[in-house]
Protein backbone atom coordinates (compact mmCIF):
# COMPACT_ATOMS: atom_id res chain seq x y z
CA UNK A 1 0.00 0.00 0.00
CA UNK A 2 1.39 3.41 -0.95
CA UNK A 3 1.68 6.38 1.38
CA UNK A 4 -1.53 7.99 2.59
CA UNK A 5 -3.07 10.47 0.17
CA UNK A 6 -2.58 14.15 0.87
CA UNK A 7 -5.20 15.78 3.08
CA UNK A 8 -6.13 18.24 0.33
CA UNK A 9 -6.82 15.48 -2.16
CA UNK A 10 -8.91 13.59 0.40
CA UNK A 11 -10.96 16.67 1.15
CA UNK A 12 -11.63 17.24 -2.55
CA UNK A 13 -12.79 13.70 -3.11
CA UNK A 14 -15.08 13.68 -0.09
CA UNK A 15 -16.75 16.88 -1.15
CA UNK A 16 -17.34 15.47 -4.62
CA UNK A 17 -18.76 12.21 -3.28
CA UNK A 18 -21.08 14.03 -0.88
CA UNK A 19 -22.53 16.12 -3.68
CA UNK A 20 -25.54 14.05 -4.70
CA UNK A 21 -28.25 16.64 -4.42
CA UNK A 22 -27.75 18.14 -7.83
CA UNK A 23 -30.15 18.54 -10.72
CA UNK A 24 -29.84 15.84 -13.34
CA UNK A 25 -28.18 13.47 -10.88
CA UNK A 26 -26.95 10.43 -12.80
CA UNK A 27 -26.45 7.38 -10.61
CA UNK A 28 -24.13 5.58 -13.04
CA UNK A 29 -21.86 8.61 -13.47
CA UNK A 30 -21.81 9.06 -9.70
CA UNK A 31 -20.84 5.46 -9.03
CA UNK A 32 -18.16 5.54 -11.71
CA UNK A 33 -16.67 8.61 -10.12
CA UNK A 34 -16.78 6.87 -6.75
CA UNK A 35 -14.99 3.73 -7.99
CA UNK A 36 -12.33 5.75 -9.80
CA UNK A 37 -11.61 7.76 -6.63
CA UNK A 38 -11.62 4.67 -4.44
CA UNK A 39 -9.13 2.90 -6.63
CA UNK A 40 -6.91 5.99 -6.68
CA UNK A 41 -7.01 6.74 -2.94
CA UNK A 42 -6.55 3.13 -1.86
CA UNK A 43 -3.93 2.51 -4.52
CA UNK A 44 -5.91 -0.52 -5.70
CA UNK A 45 -5.55 -2.14 -9.10
CA UNK A 46 -9.30 -1.94 -9.66
CA UNK A 47 -12.48 -1.01 -7.84
CA UNK A 48 -16.07 -1.87 -8.63
CA UNK A 49 -19.46 -1.32 -7.13
CA UNK A 50 -22.47 -3.56 -6.82
CA UNK A 51 -25.94 -2.55 -5.69
CA UNK A 52 -28.73 -4.85 -4.58
CA UNK A 53 -31.64 -4.91 -7.00
CA UNK A 54 -35.26 -5.28 -5.95
CA UNK A 55 -34.85 -9.04 -5.83
CA UNK A 56 -32.03 -8.67 -3.31
CA UNK A 57 -29.44 -9.73 -5.88
CA UNK A 58 -26.19 -7.83 -6.20
CA UNK A 59 -25.82 -6.26 -9.62
CA UNK A 60 -22.71 -4.73 -11.11
CA UNK A 61 -23.12 -0.99 -11.58
CA UNK A 62 -19.75 0.66 -12.17
CA UNK A 63 -15.99 0.08 -12.12
CA UNK A 64 -12.77 2.04 -12.23
CA UNK A 65 -11.62 -0.14 -15.11
CA UNK A 66 -14.23 -1.72 -17.28
CA UNK A 67 -12.85 -4.88 -18.79
CA UNK A 68 -14.46 -8.22 -19.55
CA UNK A 69 -12.20 -10.06 -17.09
CA UNK A 70 -13.28 -7.72 -14.30
CA UNK A 71 -16.91 -7.67 -15.34
CA UNK A 72 -16.97 -11.42 -14.93
CA UNK A 73 -15.58 -11.09 -11.41
CA UNK A 74 -18.36 -8.69 -10.50
CA UNK A 75 -21.08 -10.73 -12.15
CA UNK A 76 -20.15 -13.99 -10.45
CA UNK A 77 -20.69 -12.25 -7.12
CA UNK A 78 -24.42 -12.38 -7.72
CA UNK A 79 -23.84 -15.95 -6.52
CA UNK A 80 -20.79 -15.88 -4.26
CA UNK A 81 -17.72 -13.88 -3.35
CA UNK A 82 -16.47 -11.17 -1.03
CA UNK A 83 -19.24 -8.71 -1.99
CA UNK A 84 -21.91 -11.33 -1.38
CA UNK A 85 -20.42 -12.08 2.08
CA UNK A 86 -20.02 -8.40 2.86
CA UNK A 87 -23.59 -7.69 1.78
CA UNK A 88 -25.24 -10.55 3.61
CA UNK A 89 -23.25 -10.05 6.83
CA UNK A 90 -23.24 -6.23 6.64
CA UNK A 91 -19.54 -6.03 7.45
CA UNK A 92 -16.35 -5.56 5.47
CA UNK A 93 -14.23 -8.37 4.07
CA UNK A 94 -10.65 -7.14 4.21
CA UNK A 95 -7.32 -8.48 2.99
CA UNK A 96 -8.67 -11.77 1.70
CA UNK A 97 -5.80 -13.71 0.15
CA UNK A 98 -7.11 -15.01 -3.15
CA UNK A 99 -4.53 -17.80 -3.35
CA UNK A 100 -6.03 -19.18 -0.17
CA UNK A 101 -9.73 -18.62 -0.91
CA UNK A 102 -10.70 -21.46 -3.25
CA UNK A 103 -12.64 -23.23 -0.48
CA UNK A 104 -14.46 -20.09 0.57
CA UNK A 105 -15.35 -18.97 -2.96
CA UNK A 106 -14.93 -21.88 -5.38
CA UNK A 107 -16.34 -19.95 -8.35
CA UNK A 108 -14.97 -16.52 -7.60
CA UNK A 109 -11.44 -17.14 -6.30
CA UNK A 110 -9.97 -19.09 -9.25
CA UNK A 111 -11.33 -16.52 -11.71
CA UNK A 112 -9.84 -13.66 -9.69
CA UNK A 113 -6.45 -15.38 -9.52
CA UNK A 114 -6.56 -16.08 -13.25
CA UNK A 115 -7.26 -12.39 -13.82
CA UNK A 116 -3.99 -11.59 -12.04
CA UNK A 117 -5.23 -10.47 -8.63
CA UNK A 118 -3.73 -11.42 -5.28
CA UNK A 119 -5.99 -9.73 -2.76
CA UNK A 120 -9.58 -8.59 -2.55
CA UNK A 121 -11.61 -6.37 -0.23
CA UNK A 122 -15.29 -5.56 0.03
CA UNK A 123 -16.88 -2.71 1.99
CA UNK A 124 -20.59 -2.48 2.70
CA UNK A 125 -22.63 0.46 1.49
CA UNK A 126 -24.49 0.76 4.73
CA UNK A 127 -26.51 3.27 6.66
CA UNK A 128 -27.50 2.04 10.10
CA UNK A 129 -29.39 -1.23 9.48
CA UNK A 130 -29.72 -0.88 5.75
CA UNK A 131 -27.16 -2.32 3.33
CA UNK A 132 -27.70 -1.30 -0.28
CA UNK A 133 -24.61 -2.80 -1.89
CA UNK A 134 -20.85 -3.26 -1.68
CA UNK A 135 -17.68 -1.59 -2.85
CA UNK A 136 -15.10 -4.04 -4.17
CA UNK A 137 -11.32 -3.51 -4.37
CA UNK A 138 -8.74 -5.70 -6.05
CA UNK A 139 -4.97 -5.69 -5.53
CA UNK A 140 -2.23 -7.27 -7.59
CA UNK A 141 0.39 -7.15 -4.83
CA UNK A 142 0.49 -9.38 -1.79
CA UNK A 143 0.78 -6.51 0.70
CA UNK A 144 -2.10 -5.99 3.09
CA UNK A 145 -4.32 -2.96 3.16
CA UNK A 146 -3.35 -0.76 6.10
CA UNK A 147 -5.82 0.56 8.68
CA UNK A 148 -5.67 4.21 7.46
CA UNK A 149 -6.56 3.16 3.91
CA UNK A 150 -9.30 0.88 5.24
CA UNK A 151 -10.82 3.78 7.19
CA UNK A 152 -10.67 6.05 4.16
CA UNK A 153 -12.44 3.58 1.89
CA UNK A 154 -15.14 2.77 4.44
CA UNK A 155 -15.67 6.49 4.98
CA UNK A 156 -16.02 7.01 1.22
CA UNK A 157 -18.58 4.20 1.08
CA UNK A 158 -20.44 5.72 4.03
CA UNK A 159 -20.56 9.20 2.56
CA UNK A 160 -21.78 7.86 -0.78
CA UNK A 161 -24.49 5.79 0.91
CA UNK A 162 -25.70 8.72 2.97
CA UNK A 163 -25.83 10.79 -0.19
CA UNK A 164 -27.87 8.19 -2.04
CA UNK A 165 -30.30 7.59 0.81
CA UNK A 166 -30.57 11.29 1.60
CA UNK A 167 -32.12 11.92 -1.74
CA UNK A 168 -34.78 9.39 -0.96
CA UNK A 169 -35.46 10.99 2.42
CA UNK A 170 -35.86 14.41 0.85
CA UNK A 171 -38.13 13.32 -1.96
CA UNK A 172 -40.23 10.20 -1.67
CA UNK A 173 -39.51 6.70 -0.45
CA UNK A 174 -40.00 5.48 -4.01
CA UNK A 175 -37.31 7.67 -5.54
CA UNK A 176 -34.43 5.34 -4.77
CA UNK A 177 -36.30 2.40 -6.28
CA UNK A 178 -37.13 4.34 -9.42
CA UNK A 179 -33.55 5.55 -9.71
CA UNK A 180 -32.05 2.14 -9.10
CA UNK A 181 -34.26 0.54 -11.72
CA UNK A 182 -33.35 3.25 -14.21
CA UNK A 183 -29.65 2.73 -13.48
CA UNK A 184 -29.95 -1.05 -13.85
CA UNK A 185 -31.52 -0.52 -17.23
CA UNK A 186 -28.82 1.97 -18.19
CA UNK A 187 -26.22 -0.67 -17.33
CA UNK A 188 -27.95 -2.95 -19.86
CA UNK A 189 -27.94 -0.20 -22.49
CA UNK A 190 -24.19 0.29 -21.97
CA UNK A 191 -23.57 -3.44 -22.59
CA UNK A 192 -25.82 -3.37 -25.66
CA UNK A 193 -23.90 -0.34 -26.94
CA UNK A 194 -20.62 -2.21 -26.48
CA UNK A 195 -22.05 -4.98 -28.66
CA UNK A 196 -23.15 -2.51 -31.33
CA UNK A 197 -19.71 -0.89 -31.47
CA UNK A 198 -17.85 -4.22 -31.33
CA UNK A 199 -19.84 -5.44 -34.34
CA UNK A 200 -19.39 -2.22 -36.33
CA UNK A 201 -15.66 -1.94 -35.70
CA UNK A 202 -14.87 -5.64 -35.65
CA UNK A 203 -13.26 -5.36 -32.23
CA UNK A 204 -13.71 -6.84 -28.77
CA UNK A 205 -16.13 -5.46 -26.21
CA UNK A 206 -13.33 -3.98 -24.07
CA UNK A 207 -12.10 -1.96 -27.01
CA UNK A 208 -15.66 -1.01 -27.83
CA UNK A 209 -16.06 0.41 -24.34
CA UNK A 210 -12.83 2.41 -24.70
CA UNK A 211 -14.19 3.93 -27.92
CA UNK A 212 -17.41 4.80 -26.16
CA UNK A 213 -15.70 6.34 -23.16
CA UNK A 214 -13.20 8.29 -25.22
CA UNK A 215 -16.04 9.76 -27.24
CA UNK A 216 -17.91 10.77 -24.07
CA UNK A 217 -14.82 12.44 -22.63
CA UNK A 218 -13.96 14.33 -25.80
CA UNK A 219 -17.49 15.62 -26.20
CA UNK A 220 -18.23 15.94 -22.47
CA UNK A 221 -21.27 13.71 -22.74
CA UNK A 222 -22.70 11.19 -20.36
CA UNK A 223 -22.10 7.51 -20.95
CA UNK A 224 -25.81 6.81 -20.52
CA UNK A 225 -26.81 9.37 -23.18
CA UNK A 226 -24.31 8.24 -25.78
CA UNK A 227 -25.00 4.54 -25.17
CA UNK A 228 -28.69 5.25 -25.58
CA UNK A 229 -28.20 6.95 -28.94
CA UNK A 230 -25.90 4.17 -30.15
CA UNK A 231 -28.52 1.55 -29.38
CA UNK A 232 -31.51 3.40 -30.79
CA UNK A 233 -30.23 5.64 -33.60
CA UNK A 234 -26.61 4.69 -34.31
CA UNK A 235 -26.52 6.85 -37.43
CA UNK A 236 -26.91 9.94 -35.20
CA UNK A 237 -23.30 9.54 -34.04
CA UNK A 238 -21.44 8.85 -37.29
CA UNK A 239 -18.07 9.61 -35.66
CA UNK A 240 -18.55 6.59 -33.47
CA UNK A 241 -20.71 4.31 -35.59
CA UNK A 242 -18.97 4.48 -38.96
CA UNK A 243 -16.58 1.67 -39.61
CA UNK A 244 -13.02 2.96 -39.82
Amino acid sequence: MATAPAAERLAEVFVEVADTLVDEFDLIEFLQMLTAHTSELADAAAAGLLLADQHGRLQFMAASHEQARLLELFQVQTHEGPCQDCFSQAKPVINADLNDAADRWPRFAPRAVAAGFRSVHAFPLRLRNEVIGALNLFGTAAGAMEPPAIRIVQALADVATIGLLQERAIHRAEVLTEQLQAALNTRIIIEQAKGVLAQIHGCGTDEAFELLRAYCRTHRLRLSQVAHTITTNPADIPDLTTRT
Binding site: F60, A68, E72, Q75, E191, Q192, K194, G195, A198, Q199
Partner: peptide
Protein backbone atom coordinates in the same frame (compact mmCIF):
# COMPACT_ATOMS: atom_id res chain seq x y z
CA UNK B 1 -24.01 -13.81 -16.71
CA UNK B 2 -26.07 -11.20 -18.39
CA UNK B 3 -23.44 -8.85 -19.83
CA UNK B 4 -22.70 -11.20 -22.71
CA UNK B 5 -26.37 -11.55 -23.53
CA UNK B 6 -26.81 -7.79 -23.75
CA UNK B 7 -23.62 -7.40 -25.79
CA UNK B 8 -24.87 -10.11 -28.16
CA UNK B 9 -28.14 -8.21 -28.59
CA UNK B 10 -26.18 -5.15 -29.72
CA UNK B 11 -24.08 -7.22 -32.11
Amino acid sequence: DRAELWQAQGM
